[in-house]
Lab assay of single mutants.
Amino acid sequence: MQRVNMIMAESPGLITICLLGYLLSAECTVFLDHENANKILNRPKRYNSGKLEEFVQGNLERECMEEKCSFEEAREVFENTERTTEFWKQYVDGDQCESNPCLNGGSCKDDINSYECWCPFGFEGKNCELDVTCNIKNGRCEQFCKNSADNKVVCSCTEGYRLAENQKSCEPAVPFPCGRVSVSQTSKLTRAETVFPDVDYVNSTEAETILDNITQSTQSFNDFTRVVGGEDAKPGQFPWQVVLNGKVDAFCGGSIVNEKWIVTAAHCVETGVKITVVAGEHNIEETEHTEQKRNVIRIIPHHNYNAAINKYNHDIALLELDEPLVLNSYVTPICIADKEYTNIFLKFGSGYVSGWGRVFHKGRSALVLQYLRVPLVDRATCLRSTKFTIYNNMFCAGFHEGGRDSCQGDSGGPHVTEVEGTSFLTGIISWGEECAMKGKYGIYTKVSRYVNWIKEKTKLT
């Protein structure tokens, strides 16, 4: 034993070699072989497995989906700052455009905790909710729209109204504003409101030439003092309507412009014939205590009207009353817009006519005020429907199939267009061939041609 100890002390290297040989010859039971080890760690190889990531292109799944990435790591994937920024906006807080917040056709661009709407022409605001041009839906104005110097929408209202708090709607500024039905039992019968379409306001006024200088022999019209197929109006439903009495009662109609003036057809009036105007009328054979009678003290036909040349060209006249009318729910003026808007309103496509005229061709006159909704007829169809001249200051309205029309005794009465609950004068009943005849239409004086003249002559002093 002493000898062994001496050998170990003198030859430590020998001992180490012996131990190493023993270990190498022993069977290893701690580690699995290569094949079995792979069965336990069965993990798919990654895209760049075996390579240094710093030297390969980034992978979106590896960089940002398996674990949260930084902007720089995302930049490695896209290799483009702009594309990385677009991805980053949604990656950080989701897609803010998912709810489609942009209105009126706006395009949404996502941002971090926010979004941006790219608005089409005519709109602005956070969600493109603000109209900035009158060309689109009248700028959301209830009545009139004008573009300011910086191309912003400025709404306005006709006389007797003021802008509401929203700067879009119009509200009454006087007790009985024009064009409004205020009798409670008839307010439910107000005709369907007309909503502004998209309009090209630059070209809204037709490029028409008034044929002022045409000389033409007097034409022989049949029954051209021209509501057939209409309905009984309720008291106060058309408070701007008046009836004219002269040699015979209810020979023509008219509309209240203001307390002192009536507008009617020029062919209705004769110099030297006494005319009485009755406002607030409903049943011409009954006294309903809503009527107001006034005498006409002055007749002003349009300066281009000449019955000797043509009885229905420039067929418009103004009547001055001896005493002002007292405005109330049964006696209310009709609204008159400017030339541009009167023309736009007419193009809405349908209007209402009213009167006490004959209820059928050569038949009896109506006792109760009649009204009828009539569609506008395109000019080409209008011209083809008659052998008589249709001037540019006239328009056609009615039904091709016949059966409904204005008729004798309705002449001078109103053709009105309702705009968001307020009625505007767009025409004056003038003439036609018979009444409600198939293929024939009622012919009306186009008020847009005469609004400046009306307003100039009827100013209240």
Rank of each mutant, 00 (worst) to 15 (best):
V4P: 09
N5V: 15
M6V: 11
I7T: 13
I7Y: 11
I7H: 15
P12R: 10
P12Q: 11
L14N: 03
L14A: 12
I15V: 09
C18Y: 08
L19W: 10
L19H: 02
Y22C: 13
L24F: 13
S25F: 12
S25P: 11
E27V: 06
L32Y: 14
H34D: 13
H34G: 08
N36Q: 12
A37W: 02
K39F: 07
K39C: 04
I40A: 12
N42D: 08
P44M: 11
Y47C: 04
S49D: 15
L52H: 08
L52V: 05
E53H: 00
E53L: 00
E53S: 00
E54C: 00
F55T: 14
F55N: 14
G58D: 10
N59G: 03
R62F: 00
E66V: 05
E66H: 05
E72N: 08
E72A: 09
E73Y: 00
F78S: 03
N80H: 06
N80Q: 06
T81F: 09
T84A: 13
T84G: 05
E86F: 05
E86A: 14
E86P: 03
K89T: 12
D93C: 04
G94S: 13
G94Y: 08
D95I: 09
Q96A: 14
Q96W: 12
S99H: 12
P101S: 05
P101R: 05
N104P: 03
G106W: 03
G106T: 03
S107M: 09
S107Q: 11
C108I: 03
K109V: 11
D110C: 05
D111K: 11
I112D: 11
N113R: 12
C117L: 01
W118V: 14
C119E: 02
C119L: 01
C119N: 03
F121S: 14
G122S: 08
E124H: 11
E124T: 11
G125Q: 03
G125D: 03
C128I: 03
E129T: 04
T133Y: 08
C134P: 03
N135F: 11
E142R: 05
Q143D: 00
C145K: 02
S148N: 13
A149R: 10
A149F: 12
D150G: 11
N151M: 13
V153R: 10
C157M: 01
T158Q: 13
Y161I: 01
Y161N: 00
R162L: 11
L163R: 04
A164N: 09
K168N: 07
K168V: 08
C170A: 00
A173L: 10
F176K: 04
P177V: 05
P177I: 01
C178N: 00
V183S: 12
T186C: 05
T186Y: 11
T186S: 06
L189W: 11
R191N: 13
R191M: 14
R191C: 06
R191A: 15
T194K: 08
P197Y: 12
P197N: 06
V199T: 15
Y201C: 08
V202L: 13
V202N: 15
A207Q: 12
A207S: 15
E208L: 13
T209K: 09
I210Y: 06
D212I: 10
I214Q: 15
T215S: 09
T218N: 15
Q219G: 15
S220D: 15
N222Q: 12
D223Q: 11
F224E: 07
T225N: 15
R226L: 07
V227A: 12
V228W: 14
E231V: 14
D232R: 12
A233C: 05
K234D: 10
G236Q: 05
P239M: 01
L244R: 01
G246P: 05
K247F: 08
D249F: 05
F251D: 04
F251Y: 09
C252L: 00
G253P: 08
S255R: 00
N258W: 00
N258F: 02
E259Y: 04
K260E: 04
W261S: 00
I262E: 01
V263M: 03
A265H: 02
A265P: 04
H267P: 00
E270I: 09
T271K: 09
T271W: 08
G272M: 07
G272V: 09
I275C: 04
V278P: 00
A279I: 00
G280T: 02
G280L: 02
H282A: 08
N283K: 06
E285C: 06
E285S: 11
E288F: 06
E288C: 05
K293S: 08
K293F: 12
R298M: 04
R298G: 06
I300M: 08
P301V: 11
H302E: 02
N306C: 05
N306V: 07
N306Q: 08
A308W: 06
A308F: 09
I309Y: 06
N310H: 13
N310M: 05
K311F: 05
Y312D: 02
Y312T: 03
N313M: 10
I316N: 00
I316M: 04
A317G: 03
L318M: 04
L319Y: 02
L325W: 04
N328D: 08
S329L: 04
S329P: 15
T332Q: 04
T332W: 02
P333Q: 04
I334E: 00
T342D: 04
F345N: 01
L346M: 07
G349W: 05
G351L: 01
V353H: 04
S354K: 07
G355E: 04
W356D: 02
G357S: 15
G357F: 08
R358Y: 06
R358K: 15
H361W: 07
K362H: 11
R364T: 14
V368Q: 15
L369I: 06
Q370S: 11
Q370H: 11
L372S: 15
V374L: 05
V377Q: 07
D378K: 07
R379Y: 10
R379T: 15
A380F: 10
L383W: 12
S385H: 15
K387N: 15
F388C: 06
T389D: 10
I390S: 10
M394N: 14
F395M: 01
C396H: 02
C396M: 02
A397I: 03
A397V: 07
A397S: 04
G398T: 04
G398A: 05
E401K: 13
E401A: 15
G403D: 15
R404V: 09
Q408A: 07
G409Y: 11
D410R: 14
S411T: 15
G412D: 03
G412M: 15
G413E: 02
G413M: 11
P414C: 11
V416Q: 06
E418P: 11
E420N: 11
T422R: 03
S423L: 08
F424R: 00
L425A: 00
L425Q: 03
G427Q: 00
G427C: 01
G427R: 00
I428H: 03
W431G: 10
E433Y: 06
E433A: 14
E433K: 07
A436I: 14
K440V: 05
I443V: 09
I443R: 04
I443F: 06
Y444K: 00
Y444R: 01
T445A: 05
T445Q: 05
S448N: 05
R449Y: 15
Y450Q: 00
N452F: 05
W453I: 01
I454S: 01
I454G: 00
K455N: 07
K457V: 10
T458V: 06
K459Y: 08
L460I: 08
